[in-house]
Design a protein around this nucleic acid. Structure first.
Lengths: 222, 222, 222, 222
DNA sequence: CATGAATGAGAGTTCATTCAT
DNA sequence: TATGAATGAACTCTCATTCAT
């Protein structure tokens, strides 16, 4: 992501040259659109708004995308891609269930501070037509299953205290998802701060043992 | 809310009788509108949609509300009222900071399963014009301050372990607010279950020295 | 049709009064639209064109029809209705196959001078979406079958000389359909003249037993 | 026409070689365009459609034609050329009026099965701007005059029974023109079959004599 | 009071045409 | 020469809102 930024420093510049990579311009459109969708919502963002911010005309957008919804879908897909990447890494590399959950919280919180990541959770699925909507829904369900899986692993390996995985997952995911509603890129809190503190705050309630209390629960299972 | 229901059993019936309290009809409009706003979003809900579901004509709506936004604002206000009520009760009646936070979680989770409550957090502030938007924002900020206050109280009275109140409040509020995104009135989880489980799950991470707390739970389960 | 005209003397007047039969206004829209479709083709007729000629605004049209194609479909249907009426009468009342064909030519030629009738054959099926297109096509096929049936009856009862019914029907129907391409309501030829002359001209080639006839002409030329 | 085909076997191939006659490419464009105009109508055929089917880019078309209408006009002209050729041959070579009409029907029917010929009668004059439109209209009028002339010749030389030449011409021309609406190159009927059968079917009605019927008319005119 | 009818402003989309390379 | 990119104008359709009854 930071590298992308260096490739196309500003979406506005991407359309300065007539001859330029189509991919670069598509990306510029998506970045601008995502920004606007988050600022004003998809419905209130007109194709003109997107075009104006890119200093091009409305129909020029149709060279890169078939219609408005396609832009929206692509925003979702890019965001989903970010999360997917993260999830795979975690599943592969981490150790105990607790560590996976911690890693999940950390990475996911970070993604929720990136525009495309925010799109996934903040934009309204109702703006998607049937096909794309189910695609997105399925993906969200998948994320949820993943998180519950990590929690269950933790319970099984003793790193997480027994609890209702469904509710616990809802609580953790909710806290994380909500980040995309209040986070401001230029705000006081950096994405790393948020990620770190959330990881700590949220896992505390899950850690087995923590001094005396948890210990006894574990011993009860013995 | 249950009492409201007894007053106006169904929004549709409110317009059945010619002679009927204006307030009753206004309320019927609001209930129906809130429902639709949550189902399809404010933007995709047309005045016709609202009128159709109430079996009245579109301009009839304009007898009870000046314009579409007024309906939206009123939905926000009713939801805010529900939360406000809750907050005052908690501040007055509860004991330690931890108990206040627990009570907050419990009550707030419940409100997030009621339509007007969901409106407050789920509807898009961007649909409000400047004046009303700041009103809503101020109110949300107030809630946040209240929650942080409870946490701080808990830290001060030793019932909650020291932490960054801002982040902690964001995490708790996020988890709770997100309820309004996935909760379904006819779903598997009842509002009480959710409230109870969230209260437990979220506070665990905040309890100071979890020894005692857990101990009691454990011993109770024994 | 003449009675309709007396009910709504001019499409423009139909919208003069705000309170007026919806059916009357729908009809006014259809008349005006049919006229324009024939003048400029469906594609080049904008909803604005229709509205302007009726002295109303474009969106007002959407009170009476869901979309542009609906207007087109209705024009087709009205035209089809005219032909259907005619066909049924003929099948019921006429005598020999030849008489039926004559009656068909007469009536059909008349219908082809009426705007809605012209629409059926002159407007481009390609402007219809799939469903309506097959509806229209099926109807046209039905007309063709009917005509071929009449011809076959004539061959069977001896009133028409044996011939390829398919080709004969194509020729007759072609001549008749083409009327809608050149006929002008205010032109030199009245619809009755055309109908009468076509009936005579086209049937002559079908009359059985040309033997004697030829002989005598030849003898006349001698 | 068959010879043209041998010159440029397929429009797509015409652009395969870089070096190729401009005329060849123009012709390839016209053939493809005519095809598309007949398939989908001029209005629904975009320059992109034409370019795509030729596997070239849209602006390339503008090297061969100034604008879309020019393509259309040229299609008309080629079709008109086919008819003109035919008409001249007939006027020069044939004998009696009846024979000329028969030849006309035969040739004209054939032309109506060729794409450029179909264009003349099937495409919408309304798509032409003023100048070209009058050109086409004048030409159509000329054809009509020619046909009426043949009929009149027949009446004068006794080969055709007296009748209203105007109406008769309309009937014959209509039947023939309509061929372009239903004819399908790959259909069951070959162009020769159609031509032959139409020549027979349509002239039968014109032949002088046939029993009493004509006699009486003749005698009435006496 | 309540309503059917009408409107104005604006949305997404398409396409013939023209730059600029 | 030939092309990818861009545009302006037009079109269909939607909807909150307001007349006029």
């Amino acid at each position: 992501m930071p590298k992308d930024a260096s490739v196309s420093p500003s979406p506005r510049k991407a359309f300065a040259d007539r001859r330029r990579d189509v991919a670069t311009k598509r990306e510029a459109v998506l970045k601008t659109a995502a920004q606007l969708f988050l600022e004003k919502s998809y419905g209130r963002t007109s194709m003109n708004d997107v075009a104006d911010r890119l200093n091009i005309t409305k129909p020029a957008l149709y060279h890169y995308f078939d219609n408005k919804e396609d832009i929206l879908i692509e925003c979702y897909r890019l965001g989903v891609g970010l999360i997917e990447e993260t999830l795979n890494e975690i599943a592969d590399h981490c150790g105990t269930g607790l560590q996976k959950v911690e890693a999940f919280i950390y990475s996911y919180a970070t993604v929720m501070t990136l525009n495309f990541g925010r799109c996934v959770m903040r934009l309204d699925e109702g703006d998607l037509t049937s096909g794309a909507r189910t695609e997105v829904r399925n993906y969200k369900r998948k994320i949820d299953r993943r998180l519950r899986g990590f929690i269950q692993e933790g319970i099984d390996d003793g790193s997480i205290a027994p609890c209702d995985t469904k509710i616990a997952a809802f609580a953790i995911a909710g806290a994380l998802n909500w980040i995309c509603m209040w986070y401001e890129p230029d705000g006081a809190l950096s994405s790393e701060e948020i990620a770190a503190q959330f990881a700590r705050t949220l896992t505390q309630g899950l850690v087995a043992g923590k001094r005396g209390g948890r210990l006894r629960i574990v011993s009860k299972q013995e």
